[in-house]
Every structure is written in structure tokens, then in C-alpha cells.
Write a protein that binds this DNA or RNA. Structure first.
Lengths: 145, 145
DNA sequence: TGTTGTTAGTTACAAAATCAACTATTATCC
DNA sequence: GGATAATAGTTGATTTTGTAACTAACAACA
């Protein structure tokens, strides 16, 4: 048997990060998909609006690092389903001010609570110090610091 | 301005993990895509074969946690481009023994070296202890322990 | 033996992501 | 003011992924 193993894929950081990301997103995905029929980009847009109130598509894209076509389609779907409302900006009529509808607010609060619990359950696997370090390192790696 | 911010998306672990994974994969992706026209699943299959020698599609799927349809398509493309060869298993003619061709071996060694350097560059942002802890935590989160 | 169930892998169709080109509006600067 | 460039967002074509159904080969057991 040629067990060469001259490289340890299971230690390669981008690989590990992807596997951990995928695994850790799974259960949460089932919630926003199952309860609200949302896609990944859609809950992210929902959260940004829930956290910051009115924003334009470009502002959301900049904060979340999502490409404008993805945002555009997510906004469309969220608007169709009445989770958000769009209103042309008077100052710059190219852009729209996006805001959550009451239904959007409700979905946001629901998912936010799920996210909090979910995050806590993940964090509970480690010590407080470990989790703090993890978040710090991930932020640095994500270019979010 | 309604800066509610009653939730910190930038601290939500699944979100952070995804952002870090995406960011940290980018430059490596450009290498395997640019040099060999490979997709994510393809370099993973390549690496598993490079590390372990002959494997069946199912074995690769089990190790890498990739669905069989993805594997099937990745194997097809890698075979078309002569990076691997397929040979029906005599004992069980449902499965195929997959192995890298010389071209596949060369691509593997090249990308493996890139991955090593790349991993080192990421790790260099932190102390040795921090990186060891990070890998440990990611493995646990990925269910790889 | 033959019926039933399981496993390996492929294929077809639908859903989603990617990339480039496009419209509409605003900004720049001669 | 008017030409040119830049920006906000959308759309269409292509690629990639996901889901389910499928074929072929093997296993179990009456």
C-alpha cells in the first residue's frame, strides 16, 4: 500500500477553515431555509438591515463583502416576499434605500435569537479564552480588523 | 440614524468562519485555477490521490466529506485532462481504482508546495501556540477529531 | 436459484453562482 | 453647458452545484 502522506491536508488552514465553516453553518442554514425559504445571501442582507436600519445595496455589499449581483438578486427575492421595502433615494436616484418591513423585522428577530443560541452552543465547546482568541484570529484572517 | 446593532454579525462564529475561509482560500484558488484550470473539488480529489495513492471515488468522498455526484464530476474532468487514470476494480466491478498519472503527480507536487508555503504565510501572522490552538479548534468544529 | 436489498457511480433536471454587458443617473472637468 | 467618466443597480448567458432518479453490480437469504 502506498501510504505516502507527504502532506497533511487535514492541517492545511484554508481547507480546515472551509470544513469548519461548512459544518458550523449547516444547522443554522436549515433554520433560515426551512422557516423562511431564504438563501445565504438573503439572511445576510436581512441581518445587515436588521442591525443597521436603512441601507443601500452598495452599503450592504461593502459591509458584507458581497458582489452587487448577488445583493441585487437577494434584495429582489426579499422584496417579493415582503421582507423588505425599497424606496428610491431622492438625492441620488440611482440608489434605493432598503428597509425591513414588519415581517422582515420579525424574521430578523427570530433568526437573530436562533443565531445567538447557536453561537453560544458552538462556543460552549471551548473555554472563554479560547473562543475569544478564535474570534480574534478569524477576524484577522477575514480581513475584518 | 437608527444604529440599532442589537446583534454583532461580525462575531457570529459561522459567519466569521465563512468569511475567513473565503478570504484565506482566494489566493490559493487562483493558483490551482490559473495553472491547471481546476475547481475546488478537483484539487481536493487530486490531493487525496497524491497523498494516499490509489483510491476509489467512494473512499475519497468519505475522507473529504464530498458528495458522490461532485466526486463523479471532478473525476470525469480530471480524467479528461489526463491528471488521473481510472481502472475497473476486478473484485468489485462497480467501483474504479483511481490513480494519478505522471501529469497528475506533477500537478500535485506543485500545488502541494504552493499549499505549504501558503499555509506558512497564514500561520506567520500568529504565534506558534495560537496556530496550534486554531487548528485544534477548527478540527473540532469540522468534526475531524 | 431467485427475489429483495444494498452499494458504486452516473445522469438529468432544477437551483444557484459567476461574469460580462447593459441602462440610468450623477460627477468631473474642459 | 456639454462631453466623458464613474457609480448604482439590473439583466442575460454560462458555469457550477444540488437533488432525485437511474443503471449496473454485488450481497443476503429464503
Amino acid at each position: 500500500m502506498s501510504e505516502k502522506s507527504d502532506f497533511a491536508l487535514q492541517d492545511f488552514l484554508p481547507y480546515l477553515l472551509n470544513q469548519a465553516a461548512e459544518e458550523s453553518s449547516l444547522a443554522f442554514q436549515q433554520v433560515y431555509k426551512g422557516r423562511y425559504g431564504m438563501l445565504r445571501t438573503e439572511w445576510r442582507v436581512l441581518f445587515h438591515l436588521g442591525m443597521h436600519g436603512e441601507l443601500t445595496a452598495t452599503e450592504i455589499g461593502a459591509r458584507a463583502r458581497i458582489h452587487k449581483t448577488k445583493i441585487s438578486r437577494a434584495v429582489q427575492r426579499l422584496a417579493e416576499r415582503r421582507f423588505l421595502s425599497r424606496q428610491r433615494n431622492v438625492r441620488d436616484r440611482r440608489s434605493e434605500r432598503l428597509a425591513l418591513t414588519p415581517a422582515g423585522e420579525a424574521a430578523y428577530r427570530d433568526l437573530r435569537d436562533v443565531a445567538r443560541e447557536y453561537d453560544a452552543r458552538i462556543a460552549a465547546q471551548f473555554t472563554t479564552g479560547e473562543v475569544a482568541l478564535l474570534r480574534m484570529m478569524l477576524k484577522r484572517l477575514a480581513g475584518m480588523d
